[in-house]
Amino acid sequence: MPDHALTYATDLDGTSVVGVIMPKTAKTVWLDAVDYDFITALHPNARWSNNPNGFGQHYVRLRIPGDTNRNLYVARIITGNLYASGTRYHDGDRSNLRRSNLFTGIGSGGVPKKARKRRVNPLHIPMDGVRSHA
Rank of each mutant, 00 (worst) to 15 (best):
T79W: 04
P2G: 08
R98Y: 15
Y89C: 05
R98E: 15
I39W: 08
A115F: 03
S108G: 14
T104G: 06
Q57D: 14
Y59R: 00
P52M: 01
P122H: 07
P65K: 01
H43T: 05
V29T: 10
D11K: 10
N101C: 10
G109A: 11
P126I: 05
T79F: 06
A9H: 07
H133P: 08
Y36H: 06
V29E: 00
T15P: 15
G92K: 10
L62E: 00
N81D: 12
P122D: 04
M1S: 08
V74G: 02
A134T: 11
G92D: 08
L42F: 12
G80E: 08
D32R: 00
L72E: 09
G107L: 09
I39V: 08
D128K: 11
A33S: 13
L97A: 07
S95V: 01
S85K: 13
M1R: 12
H4C: 11
G129L: 09
D3V: 03
T40F: 06
F103W: 13
I77M: 04
G92E: 06
R131W: 13
V130P: 06
A46P: 01
H58G: 03
G92V: 06
N53H: 02
M22Q: 11
D32N: 03
P112M: 14
K113M: 15
L12H: 08
A33L: 09
G110P: 12
M1F: 12
T104D: 07
T28K: 01
N71A: 07
L31T: 05
V20R: 00
D35Q: 02
S95R: 06
L62K: 06
Y8W: 15
G109Y: 14
Y83D: 11
A84T: 14
L82R: 12
V130S: 07
